[in-house]
Amino acid sequence: MLNIAVCIKQVPDARTVRFDKETGMMIREGVETIINPVDLNALEAALAIKDGHDARIHVLTMGPPSADKALRDALSMGADQAYLLSDRAFAGADTLATTRVLAAALKKIGQMDMVVCGNQSVDGDTAQVGPGLAVRLEMPSVAYVNALELTADTLKCIRMTGHGHDTVLMKTPCLVTVIPSINTPRMPSLKGKMKAKSAGIPVWTANDLGLSMNDIGLAGSPTRVLNTFVRSFEARRERLEGDADAQVAALCERLVAAGVL
């Protein structure tokens, strides 16, 4: 049986997010959380493999206790087992510290044949966790994957590049990060939701994972965020009058003046 791990992240739902203009911080109140959208594609990629192979899918997330909901959502789509990595000491982790926690958890779960991650999260947006995790697990990895096919112990990956695509063959165990166009995530099922409701989800702390305080959370994160700010879009509005020709001329004049044309 194959063991496939899927790493997911709970993120604020962009549709409900507002920012405090003064501090540049997100207003947490009234913000709903969802599974990072491309992580659903990662889960779907794993489920699609399970559709054709004897496989067990493990989902894990590092996050606050409330990330339990994201894990149950993943279970309702068909994942077999979930793990919540939660500890106050994990707070403030950058991508390096995050991969240390995920790697430790994966080692604790057991030998994986495949690890699937979303390419990047909508809040952090670095695309570093997948490849970083592969390094810590000493696995080969391919990022930006748009199609996957597993035959015996060889994973064929189509990797999108700026100017086309590469086809990469990789031996398992290995790690891939996927992009949204790889698939359409399936709907949860009623039976899955019922099972997910009562599923036992272990919660692992730094201690459970045998991690040193220097390697995790803020202390284990060399990244320093100097500043965050809210981009404001304050467009100037002007109504152009006259017939179409006059309006086109007026528009061109303004675009030239603005250096756009």
Partner: peptide, 14 residues
């Protein structure tokens, strides 16, 4: 019930 709520959520999502 919780199960009925699940049916509502799922059908609504679809």
């Amino acid at each position: 019930t919780e199960e009925q709520q699940m049916i509502v959520e799922l059908a609504r999502k679809i």
